[in-house]
Design a protein around this nucleic acid. Structure first.
Length: 259
DNA sequence: CTGGGGACGGGGCCC
DNA sequence: CGGGCCCCGTCCCCA
């Protein structure tokens, strides 16, 4: 199974009328099977048994926390968000999500434009850079020659129109929650948000009675059950369930010997 | 301060 | 090409 995570879920092939979903929210959502974890394909449970750990010591120096840049928002919380940086090293050790491990390694690091922040549509100025302007920005003709679809709301650019359109949704936020009015870029984000209103928690932990509305949160929770957690300190070998915890641990002094 | 949960965003992939 | 789904990751908050 090349992509185990592509298991059809409760909402699969449901009519994508999300506004209707919202109107029906409480009752219709209850019809979905609850506490059903796709553990059969062990896409998540394997993190239990695998010895996969992240080791900050093997990361480039820039990954090591320095001045807690995430608070300042200047450079963002480490560039670990780049999928190629960590995932590649992790998947090589036979990690949990074999599906993702099949992803081709990114040919080049993805440069983040801005620190991870809640991206809300704030009516930013439209800006489309003509080729000549790119040259003024110091971009080489070769760079400008490659297919580039520029977002008119922000400096981001994409190599495909589809990717750009999907990104633009993060500005237009077409999916609006009828309960609270909060807007989202994608329908499934709205669905996840609606769960916060309905209290639906389709993702349950197979090791305890906890359930979660968000699969990612369940994944993070599973780490708390793991004897060997995903992120390991290179100095004291202590493991942590989250990268942020490891970063805090490192910055708090354990790894101070590294410099 | 640490650990964990809640909520959310983005890119990639498949249909 | 768009919709839907997935994983990864982050931020915020609380015990």
């Amino acid at each position: 199974m090349p992509r185990s995570f592509l298991v059809k879920k409760y909402f699969a092939k449901q009519k994508p009328n999300y506004s209707e979903l919202e109107y029906q929210n409480d009752t219709s959502l209850e019809t979905y099977p609850l506490a059903e974890l796709p553990s059969a394909d062990n896409s998540t449970s394997t993190c239990f048994t695998t010895g996969l750990v992240w080791d900050l010591s093997v990361l480039p120096a820039l990954y090591l926390p320095t001045a807690h840049s995430e608070a300042s928002g200047t450079s963002g919380p480490l560039d670990l968000s780049s999928p190629c940086s960590l995932s590649s090293s992790a998947s090589s050790s036979g990690e949990e999500d074999e599906g993702r491990s099949s992803d081709p390694p990114s040919p080049e690091p993805v440069i983040k434009y801005a620190p991870r922040q809640r991206m809300k549509c704030t009516g930013v100025m439209a800006h489309v850079s003509p080729p000549e302007e790119e040259e003024e920005r110091g971009e080489t003709p070769a760079m400008a020659a490659r297919p580039a679809f520029l977002c008119k709301h922000c400096p981001k650019e994409y190599t495909s129109l589809g990717a750009l359109k999907m990104h633009i949704r993060s500005h237009t936020l077409p999916c609006v929650c009828t309960t609270c009015g909060k807007a989202f870029s994608r329908p499934w984000l709205l669905r996840g948000h609606i769960r916060t209103h309905t209290g639906e928690r389709p993702f349950s932990c197979p090791h305890c009675n906890r359930a979660f509305a968000d699969r990612s949160n369940l994944r993070a929770h599973l780490q708390t059950h793991a004897e060997v957690k995903k992120y390991q300190c290179g100095v004291c070998s202590r493991t942590f369930s989250r990268m942020s915890l490891l970063q805090k641990h490192s910055s708090s002094g354990c790894c101070s010997t590294l410099g």
